[in-house]
């Protein structure tokens, strides 16, 4: 499973065709979702499968439809990015050395706060699905924020795409005009 994830990720790096890359991205999200399921996070897994693998991929494909499907052969050195990534990765691995081990029930994250959400939820909210309960109550505010994020993104996309046809014309007719900035 993990291996598959790695393979998919690396495949994206190597690929030139954008269709395939986007599909790989979808597959990657899907694999990720499956793994989340294995890690006992079904809610997240479903969301990731639907939103990450589903919506993102569709959006990306739609964009491809509007733009182009081939990536150019890239030129120039790839050393600098590799070095940056190498350092970042090494830092992270270094950081893991003091981490509580995978699945450790006594790790701070899993043992604090006390009583845990699970225990409190039973008394406070009476919904068996703790994730839903926390989402809607204790951290309801994050959820509100999440709605706002969607809203913001929606407006931003709308702002960007609205009337883009007319802009297209303006830009073309203006040619190399740089200074004039108004179109309406």
């Amino acid at each position: 499973m993990l291996l598959l994830l790695c393979v998919t990720a690396v495949a994206v790096v190597r690929m030139r065709g954008l269709w395939a890359a986007v599909m790989m991205m979808g597959i990657y999200s899907f694999l990720g979702a499956s793994w989340m399921l294995l890690l006992d996070a079904p809610d997240v897994a479903f969301t990731e499968a639907a939103v990450g693998a589903g919506i993102s991929t569709v959006l990306a494909l739609a964009t491809l439809g509007l733009t182009t499907t081939r990536a150019k052969q890239r030129s120039g050195s790839s050393m600098l990015p590799l070095v940056i990534v190498g350092i970042t990765g090494a830092a992270l691995v270094y950081g893991t050395l003091d981490m509580p081990h995978f699945g450790d029930p006594d790790s701070p994250a899993n043992s604090y706060p006390h009583p845990s959400y699970v225990e409190r939820t039973e008394g406070d909210i009476h919904i068996p699905n703790v994730v839903t309960a926390v989402l809607a109550s204790y951290r309801g505010y994050d959820t509100l924020g999440e709605v706002v994020v969607i809203f913001t993104a929606g407006i931003a996309v709308f702002v960007l795409l609205r009337g883009s046809r007319s802009r297209k014309r303006t830009h073309r007719s203006e040619g190399s005009e740089v200074r004039v900035s108004r179109h309406d």
Binding site: S56, V131, D142, I150
Partner: peptide, 20 residues
């Protein structure tokens, strides 16, 4: 459950960013 909650939010944020 808490990481799940956080990530549910984060997934949405991620998609929002992607769409913009």
């Amino acid at each position: 459950p808490l990481p799940s909650v956080l990530i549910l939010t984060a997934i949405v944020v991620g998609v929002a960013t992607t769409s913009v």
